[in-house]
Computed example of a mutant assay.
Amino acid sequence: MFNIPVITWTLTTILLLGGSYHVLQAAKSRHLTDRVNKGLHALMNALMAAMLWNLIPTTMLAQVTVLTCAALWFTIQAVARPEFKILCTDSQGRLKCLYHALTMAGAALMLAMMAQTTTPGHGTVPAGTMSMPTTHHAMATAAHTTATPTLDHSPALAIPVTIFFGTAAAIFIILLLRSRLRTTTTHAHTPKLTTRTEHALEALGAAIMALMFATTTA
């Protein structure tokens, strides 16, 4: 699927547009925590776009480390005590931070799964193609001839992650449609445009994540 240029370019455009939106929101925010959160989302979008083209594979360890730290940061916000007002305090905010922690962890997992396809003995994949679906069977064979630990059960691991992000995409689409319905039926408590935009971006991001993980099961 990702060998088709139009799909790769479409997903790349969506990710970069989403990243640009988060950069703008970070610049407009008055709170340091919001700036950091939006900046991390922009970074994740950029790294996911780079995954589609198999760019800068030599820095994958650093990328995985950054995304893992980002996942830890959102987890800390999700479990922070209520007196820390700059972090997630209400139930909705904690749930949002927990989801973002899982999103960052998912991106880190995706990079780790890609990294094993570029290590010695596994070969490399040209830029502009997704390496995982085209090298999965080669990876399974190479795993028996190398002493380097690898994610031998990546398809089994990817299936529940694919289901999770697919479900998340559906939930965000429902939230988006519900907010639009409320907008057309009443002007009371109308969600802000920013909220609807974020729901749309979350839905697209979750769908792309699910699609990318789904390719590893092929």
Rank of each mutant, 00 (worst) to 15 (best):
F2D: 03
F2V: 01
W9K: 15
W9Q: 14
W9C: 02
T13D: 15
L15I: 11
G18C: 11
S20Y: 05
Y21R: 04
L24P: 00
Q25S: 09
A27Q: 14
R30K: 15
T33F: 13
R35V: 03
V36M: 06
N37G: 02
L40D: 01
M44F: 05
L47F: 13
M51H: 12
L52P: 09
W53H: 12
W53I: 07
L55A: 06
L55Q: 10
T58I: 02
T58K: 10
T59A: 12
A62Q: 13
Q63F: 01
T65M: 11
C69F: 14
C69D: 15
L72R: 11
L72I: 13
F74W: 07
F74N: 03
A80D: 08
L87D: 05
G93R: 15
R94V: 06
L95V: 08
C97K: 11
C97E: 14
L98M: 15
Y99C: 11
Y99K: 15
A105K: 11
G106L: 02
A107S: 09
A108N: 02
M114P: 00
M114I: 03
A115G: 01
T117Y: 10
T118L: 03
H122E: 00
T124K: 06
T124D: 07
V125Y: 07
M130S: 14
P133W: 02
P133D: 00
T134F: 15
T134G: 12
T135V: 09
T135M: 13
A138P: 01
A140T: 06
A142T: 04
T145R: 08
A147H: 11
A147E: 15
P149V: 04
P149C: 04
D152A: 12
D152S: 10
P155T: 02
A156L: 13
L157G: 03
A158M: 10
A158G: 02
I159Y: 04
V161P: 00
I163W: 10
F164W: 05
F164E: 01
F164N: 01
F164Q: 04
T167G: 06
A170N: 03
A170L: 11
I174W: 14
L176M: 08
R178D: 09
R180P: 00
R182G: 14
R182A: 05
T183C: 12
T185A: 10
T185M: 10
T186E: 12
H187S: 09
A188P: 00
H189N: 14
L193R: 10
T195Y: 04
E198D: 06
E198R: 01
E202D: 13
A203Q: 05
L204I: 12
L211A: 15
M212E: 12
A214M: 14
T215H: 13
